[in-house]
Simulated assay, not measured.
Amino acid sequence: MTADIVEFPARPAGEPVRVRRVAAEGDIVVICLNATVGLWAAWPVAAVDDDGVVMSVTSRAGKMLGVGRLNCAPDVLAFRAADHDPEAFAALRWRTWMDQDDAVIAFAEIARSPDV
């Protein structure tokens, strides 16, 4: 077996590595809490990994909980705090919906226009 060595251009020294963040602390994720009845809940993001993947959320009591322990479905909807009205965004923390589409609509209604 043979292999070719491929030369990749190096990143210039001192240039930071840029990672596209999926979520950040303070954002909100909507996850499935009960697949049987279709219960979806909004949780404030407590921690993300280096790729911006949500690792944990914060409960009303201030406890940090692992997303993998709470979520009963493969879907996770992430909403960025910077893209929404701050007061309305905070008001949606821990809110529940019986349909994930209703959660999307709730966040769409408080979204800031792109030029704000």
Rank of each mutant, 00 (worst) to 15 (best):
M1V: 05
M1W: 05
M1S: 11
M1I: 06
T2V: 07
A3D: 13
D4L: 12
D4V: 10
I5T: 14
V6G: 01
V6L: 13
E7P: 04
E7W: 12
F8C: 10
R11K: 13
R11S: 08
P12Y: 02
P12R: 06
A13T: 14
A13R: 13
A13F: 15
A13D: 14
G14W: 02
E15V: 15
E15L: 15
E15T: 15
P16G: 13
P16F: 13
V17S: 05
V17C: 04
R18E: 07
R18T: 07
R18G: 00
R21D: 11
R21G: 06
A23C: 03
A24T: 12
A24W: 07
E25M: 14
G26W: 00
D27T: 03
V29R: 08
V30N: 04
V30S: 05
I31C: 01
I31E: 02
C32Q: 07
L33P: 09
N34T: 05
T36G: 10
V37C: 12
G38D: 05
A42T: 02
A42F: 02
W43Y: 13
W43I: 00
V45Y: 00
A46Q: 12
A46C: 09
A46I: 07
A46L: 07
A46F: 09
A47S: 13
A47T: 14
D49R: 05
D49V: 03
D51V: 09
G52K: 01
G52T: 02
V53A: 08
V53W: 05
V53Q: 08
V54F: 06
V54A: 11
M55H: 03
S56N: 03
V57G: 06
V57R: 05
V57S: 07
T58L: 15
T58Y: 10
T58E: 15
S59F: 10
R60N: 08
A61S: 15
G62F: 10
K63M: 04
K63P: 00
M64Y: 12
L65V: 11
L65R: 08
L65Y: 08
L65G: 01
L65W: 08
G66I: 01
V67R: 00
R69T: 13
L70R: 00
L70E: 00
L70N: 00
L70A: 00
N71W: 03
A73C: 09
A73S: 14
P74Q: 02
D75H: 08
V76C: 10
L77N: 01
L77D: 02
A78I: 08
A78E: 03
F79M: 03
F79A: 00
R80K: 12
A82G: 06
H84A: 09
P86C: 00
P86S: 02
E87F: 04
E87G: 02
F89L: 03
A91I: 01
A91L: 00
L92A: 02
L92V: 04
L92R: 06
W97M: 04
M98E: 14
M98L: 14
D99G: 11
Q100F: 10
Q100C: 09
Q100V: 14
D101R: 13
D101Y: 10
D102M: 12
D102R: 14
A103V: 10
V104Y: 09
V104S: 12
I105V: 13
I105Y: 05
A108G: 09
E109M: 08
I110K: 02
I110L: 06
A111G: 04
A111K: 12
R112G: 11
S113H: 14
P114T: 06
P114G: 05
D115Y: 11
D115H: 11
D115E: 11
D115I: 07
V116W: 08
